[in-house]
């Protein structure tokens, strides 16, 4: 498809070797970029008059457990103009995982990033209000990490006393 090539071309022109990988599986275009460039990439994608990815649909992360770069942060963005959904990925390391927040570009990323922080413990730098989304304050773990058991850790969440 032409549009897809245009997107890749534009990113490659602007960021060169920071564009690490481009895949097109089942017609879903997915571009991996260096994690330190995420805000710049987001700005270009949103503001370029030919692309106009104005809506951020989703932010999440993947925990690869054994890979060197353990986490991948995944963004799904949408352009009304071209009617195309694009996936942006950024790999980050296991040690104190952190990435720049994209809330300055897409305000809707606010809650998605909070959710990702809650579930994976990935810190989004410069996020306006980085708190847990679902789990109670004071909970010490990040449930979607692979080492966390499905049944939870006994005693980590308090119950009211028995009558």
């Amino acid at each position: 498809m032409e549009m897809k090539e245009l997107i890749v071309e534009k990113l490659k022109k602007n960021f060169g070797e920071f564009v690490q990988e481009v895949t097109d599986f089942r017609n879903d275009l997915s571009i991996t970029i260096a994690s330190n460039k995420i805000v710049d990439v987001a700005k270009i994608l949103k503001e370029d008059p030919e692309l106009e990815f104005v809506m951020c649909k989703d932010v999440t992360a993947i925990d690869w457990a054994t890979r060197k770069n353990r986490f991948t942060v995944v963004y799904h963005i949408y352009s009304f103009k071209n009617n195309i959904t694009l996936r942006i990925k950024a790999n980050i390391a296991e040690e104190s995982p952190a990435i720049e927040s994209v809330t300055s570009v897409w305000p809707s990323a606010n809650w998605y990033e909070r959710e990702t922080y809650d579930m994976y413990g990935i810190v989004f730098k410069n996020h306006p209000d980085l708190r847990r989304m679902y789990m109670p304050e004071g909970f010490q773990y990040h449930p979607l990490r692979k080492e966390f058991p499905v049944l939870g850790i006994p005693g980590s969440l308090p119950l009211p006393g028995k009558i």
Partner: peptide, 9 residues
């Protein structure tokens, strides 16, 4: 504009 920015669908 707000609706789009906030990701409303």
């Amino acid at each position: 504009e707000d609706a789009i920015a906030l990701g409303i669908t």
